[in-house]
Design a binder for these strands. Sequence first.
RNA 1: GCAGCCGUAGCUCAAUUGGAUAGAGCGUUGGCCUCCGAAGCCAAAGGUUAUGGGUUCGACCCCCGUCGGCUGCACCA
Length: 639
Amino acid sequence: MTIAQQLQAILQRALQSLPEPLLEGFTATVSPAADSRFGDYQANAAMTLAKARRTNPRALAAQIVAALQADAALEPISQPPEIAGAGFINFRLKPEFLARELAALDADPERLGVGQPAHPHRVVIDFSGPNIAKPMHVGHLRSTIIGDCLARVARFVGYSVVTDNHLGDWGTQFGKVIYGWKNFLNSAGLAADPLEELVRVYQLASSLADTNPSLETAQQLADLRAAAVDDMLKSFHGQPGVDAAALEKMRVEATAVITEADRKQTLEIANACRAELAKLQSGDPENVAIWQQCVDLSRAGLDKIYHRLGIHFDYQYGESFFNSKLAPLVVRLEKTGVAQPGEERDGKRPLVVQFPDDPKLAESPAMIRKGDGAFNYATTDIATYEQRVNEIGADALWYVVGAPQSLHFEQQNAIVRRMGYLVPLTHIPFGSVLGEDRKMLSTRKGTGASLRGLLDEAEERARAIVEEKNAGMPADEKAEITRVIGVGAVKYAELSQHRLTDYVFSWDRMLSFQGNTAPYLQNAYVRIRSIFRRGELDPEAPGGTAPLALSEPAERELARKLAQFAETVPTVLEDFRPNLLANYLYELAGTFHSFFEACPVLKAEEGTPRETRLTLCRVTMRTLRVGLGLLGIEVPERM
RNA sequence: GCAGCCGUAGCUCAAUUGGAUAGAGCGUUGGCCUCCGAAGCCAAAGGUUAUGGGUUCGACCCCCGUCGGCUGCACCA
């Protein structure tokens, strides 16, 4: 039980012993004090209750404190509680109690006080979801890293977690992919780097076919195409191995004089892409074979990235997996009256689900079959929901998907409820990664730095620093450390901020190694490992037999911080906020660094003083390792 | 037009969901390596939390208005 929980239980008993009955459903909460001047923990119950009863909060607080002191369980934990301000009740922990808590954490190396619920729910977490044939760029990091972190935390606190990467391996873009494949494929490029080549032909076809039927003149097309090509090329600038002169040549060629004939050709290419798509959807063997090859290549490339990031999926059902389930699903929706014909256009009627009784969705029906009979992603997602609930046995579904799609998920929720399903579907939205122009990055146009380039650059910067600090290190260890630091920095940059915040992508932001960054946390860990190495002690061995005692303020602060780990971890899932854990670990590392400066460990007096400091180091080390592990970040032995 | 998200130090972000004097990093200024790793520590400066009202013991947080930014709204996923 955490310290906060222990105090809470005592407080709850005290409140129940008061003459007046408690409010319906009121549970007392005890939280860490905002400021150490006010002690270690605080309770605001007196003010909350006094407000409801219209009585004096300080007088009520005095009553509560009297009841608290009558409880023998409080005496070993805290000094007599104090009343302050408007009616705060402050607890100051006894040093002996904190020392006992520290010993308990030392004896619990795997979980460090974090409990597990008795009856775990099965939750399916949907995250990452890259589109095959589109490059994974820095914008995909958010879903991938946040989703992976939530999966780790959920598993740690006892959920039965199933991770599912809902790959975008079907849909309109394959018309362009197949057209590009048939017309522009460079076999040498395919052999050298299949994924790059696949992306190249897709983007080329996409920019050539990117036209608007209402386009009147060749000049309009020229402008449009120039903008598309510019965007595409911009994303390559500054990336390793890119020749600026070659880029300029490409730009000039692509935006050269555009004639009326070109305009006609663009329309033809767009039509040709649509034709390739239709052939794929009707099962044309050649196109299906190309599609399959693209999917295989792409998945192999993605697996490399996921391996590098240390991310694992239990399933990777792509959208194509659900193709055969869509037609029967839609028939069912139509028969049960969930879906109705929508507005007619060009003589064709789509099938939609209306939500007349929902004020938010009344104006926003969801389309589940297009006028031409094809299905769209709302349909696929319903089929996916059914599979997860009926076959995987999910009790909860978490979707880590960008905030712009919140309407889609509200519609999904409304649809499955109407179908009679009870399992909730939770959208966990996050903010957008913006380009320099403050607009969202777009994969279709190819804007935005590639994820692989980002990781390469991260490792490169880490390597430069490791070379400087640890030149003599063996090459294989150096390679491993630069990976751990580089990937860690990128992940931490994402996880340490509130997930709804939009931000402009910047190399320096993602790759800073100072201040509130992963390397700062890793450095605290490395320093502790170094202490044990210096002292020729086994950092994983159980502590000595000397009793522990916290005498220095820095020791006390660190012990207090360590005890908060178990209070922090569960809060991550309350509102899906990895940054709460990241912030905690940052504070822990800072508290440790202060302790490290103030309190020599190996040179401390033998017996209780040295044993206490070694224990603080050992528990900090494990808390950093386990905590960073929950963020999906590894720790190096040296750096 | 309807709906959603957002506006906090020069810059980038926090703030335990209504609690005490709004905190960090970067940058700026000044200290700290004969001492377990300086990717570090200690300290200073920096704020009318976009803005105007309201609710109450108490508001960055809740309610209403205004200004500004982003996003979504039927045949892309």
